[in-house]
Amino acid sequence: MIKKELRIFFTALMFYTRIPCPKWVDHSASYLNQSTRYFPLIGWIVGLLCFAVYYGVSCLFPADISVIISMVTGIFVTGAFHEDGFADVCDGFGGGWTKQKILDIMKDSRVGAFGVIGLILLFLLKFTLLLHIAQNGNIAPATLLALFIAAHSLSRLAAISIVFTHQYARESDSSKIKPVAEKYTWKEISGAFFFGLAPLIYLALYHYQIMYALIPVFIFRFLLARYFDKWIGGYTGDCLGATQQVGEIVFYLSVIGIWKFI
């Protein structure tokens, strides 16, 4: 039982990051489907690494440089998996007017003007928000660590929860995300919500107001899922990546807004 869960976890780690995994972990559609329960847990790892790099670099360099290197770390660890999805969604929904055209554009490996503009604005906004949070003199390192982890875990929960409520839009089985969309059980749902909400609940033990960040994150999740469903009749892997990136941004915005009342 434990070995199977480890295999499922490492399958998630292998699929969603560039972190080396044991040689006995191979690609399995069945395990990939079950790995949705650990997708928010991957956020713990990415958030921890981003914070560790930020904290270490900040001992030598200013906060703005530390934030940029921290962002580079997140992109390197995930292989720009979610950022690529965000760019594809910007291109697809920005340039396509029919379901098939949108899906074809998102499948194209080339990045268009909408994708480039979207990524520039995304990175600029993320950098500004993280810098604002990092320069808050009242925040303890442990709290900042929890915020980093919560941002990555909650945004991944918002993304993967779309799998539980909406249909996969592509008819082809060629997509890498297709096995994730096939089926799920209560284990996947409960695991995703546990790992997605645990860091936020930890923060709420000290500042209960932080729980209010759930509201805007899931409002945007609802609006994005509804928008995807309207235009393409469901979601794709790119849509999940875009939702994760938007959810992360919305979380940072929410935290800054909530601080005004703490």
Rank of each mutant, 00 (worst) to 15 (best):
A63W: 04
T73D: 13
P20Y: 09
L240I: 08
D26A: 13
L41F: 09
K4R: 15
L60E: 13
G56S: 11
I162G: 01
Y202W: 15
E171V: 11
G112A: 07
I105H: 02
I262F: 12
F15W: 04
A52K: 01
L32Q: 06
A198L: 07
I232Q: 10
G196L: 00
L122C: 05
P179F: 01
G96T: 10
T236N: 13
A87V: 11
A52Y: 01
M211V: 11
E182Q: 14
L223K: 14
K178G: 07
L154R: 00
L48E: 06
L103F: 02
T185C: 02
Y202Q: 07
G118T: 01
A142P: 10
L200Q: 09
R110K: 14
L214Y: 11
K101P: 02
V89W: 05
I68M: 08
Y184C: 02
I210E: 11
F195D: 00
V89E: 09
A242F: 10
I189R: 05
S109F: 09
A192T: 00
G247R: 01
N33S: 15
M1I: 05
T185V: 10
A150L: 04
K183H: 05
L145A: 08
L125T: 13
I177R: 04
R226A: 08
L103V: 14
W97Y: 10
K187C: 04
Y184W: 14
G247V: 06
G118Y: 11
G85A: 09
P62Q: 11
S174D: 14
I232K: 10
N33R: 10
S155C: 03
M211S: 12
I68L: 13
V72K: 08
L6F: 13
N136H: 14
L200A: 14
F123P: 00
S30Y: 12
K23G: 05
V180C: 04
I249Y: 04
Q34V: 01
I133Y: 05
S161L: 06
G196N: 04
G137I: 08
F123L: 15
M1D: 00
Y55S: 11
P179G: 02
Y235N: 02
V89T: 13
P62Y: 11
W24F: 11
Q245V: 07
A52G: 01
H166S: 13
G85N: 10
P179A: 02
A158P: 02
S254L: 09
D26E: 13
L157G: 04
H132N: 05
T98C: 12
R226I: 03
H27R: 14
I19S: 02
A159F: 02
